[in-house]
Design a protein around this nucleic acid. Sequence first.
DNA 1: ATGCTGGCCAAAGTGTACTT
DNA 2: AAGTACACTTTGGCCAGCAT
Length: 342
Amino acid sequence: MEYTKDHIILEYKRLKEYLGKSPSSRKFYAETGLSLRMLEKLYGSNAFSKLVNECGDVANNFSTDKIEIEDILLQWGNLTRECKKLPAIADWQFNNCKPQITNIKKSHGLRWADIPYKFLELFSDKNEWQDVVAIIPNRSPNEVTTSKNIPKIEGLPYEILKFIPPVVQDLVDQSSDKEKALEFEKGVNLVFQMLGFEVTNYGQGTGRNPDGIAKASQNNYAVLVDAKSRTENYKIGTDDRTFIEYINKFYEPLKKSGFKNIYLLIVSSGFDLVTASAIKNIKIDTQVSTTFLTSKLLLKLLSNKIKNPRQFDLKLFQELLIEDGEITEKRIDALIAKQNKS
DNA sequence: ATGCTGGCCAAAGTGTACTT
DNA sequence: AAGTACACTTTGGCCAGCAT
């Protein structure tokens, strides 16, 4: 059906009267059954705005161009100069500065509290802005730390947390959630890589294998690593058979390529009192020691490795693996102390 | 070819939860 | 109470993709 401009203008005015105010375009299309394409035939681009203007109203205008960060900072600088102190959000609003704070966050990823420091980044060397620069206080160390949003892990203080890389920050979480088994395996392998091991990934989809093999070629030992994500503490149960299978499969090839010692390490969120018989079975069948390590303590080790990369010694790490059973926090702390002393 | 839908963009504005 | 951060909704313009 063909419409004329007159017909459309009539529809617009009718709807406006009915609503008691100028309709939005969406409302207009919905109420009149007219379509944008139809309007475009008569008006071309920006059809609805042109229609609104023709009817004597002022068309809404949404600026489509993103406001550059420099523009925002210049407005902020002028505002600060005027206020003679750091402006509040309300000052920004009151002075009609643009865009709104929420949109600065959205389009530039900048929080209100961070704007002064972005300003410093770009304008601190400009003579004409020195009065504003003087108003901006130094960043308090507290603020810097809270803005980084480091997830909290129970039992690990901030001093340790801050050295843990974001890719493995969720490791403890993953270790206690069976749904995240795959991420956990990958994370554990990644941590061993960061500790300085040469890691081969196996894990899910590669048949009967441990999740990874961490090799310390320099020190002639290799660790078969198995990551178990469990909500409850991990129980070895009848898994000893599977572990023996793993070991038998990899023992000879590893020996042949020069690894004198081979260990089995199980990483999980926590452990039930480890059943001695299972460990004994593994030992009898394979001569390999089995140790258990929580994801939390693994991260603690990693944190220290990243903090003092040169002190970390894979030879000292080997000492943890010799004795069967769960590796306690005490022993980890002792290892860290020993490393940092040397 | 034409029409329709849903989604994206950059913005304004509103409401709410949190901190100081 | 004031200040702050952020999620959510609505707005016009625009476009890709699908159906007719």
